[in-house]
């Protein structure tokens, strides 16, 4: 369980200054120490908040689509109706 700021930053799509790396490294290691006090458990069935019946799911009826003008309204860059990267 070796924490590596740069590698995790890569996964999360961040670039860090040296200062940030040092700062985060310290903070995160402290939090990991904190987390390590939680006892291990044998059964780890994830608790799911609630259940829904198949019959209660959404009906397959079209609704709610936007005009493409609205779709692109917040786009930082757009051209000919597309988002541009």
């Amino acid at each position: 369980m070796a924490f590596d700021v740069l590698r995790v930053g890569e996964l999360a799509r961040f670039e860090f200054t040296e200062e940030e790396v040092k700062k985060f490294d310290g903070h995160i290691k402290e939090m990991l120490r904190m987390i390590s006090i939680i006892p291990e458990v044998l059964e780890t069935e994830a608790m799911v908040a609630n259940k829904v019946r198949l019959s209660d799911l959404r009906e397959d009826v079209p609704q709610g689509s936007w005009d493409s003008f609205d779709v692109l309204a917040n786009a930082p860059k757009k051209k000919s109706g597309f988002f541009v990267v």
Binding site: G64, S65, W66, S68, S80, G81
Partner: peptide
Amino acid sequence: VANSHCCEI
């Protein structure tokens, strides 16, 4: 048309 069957979701 591109981006014409879209919503916030």
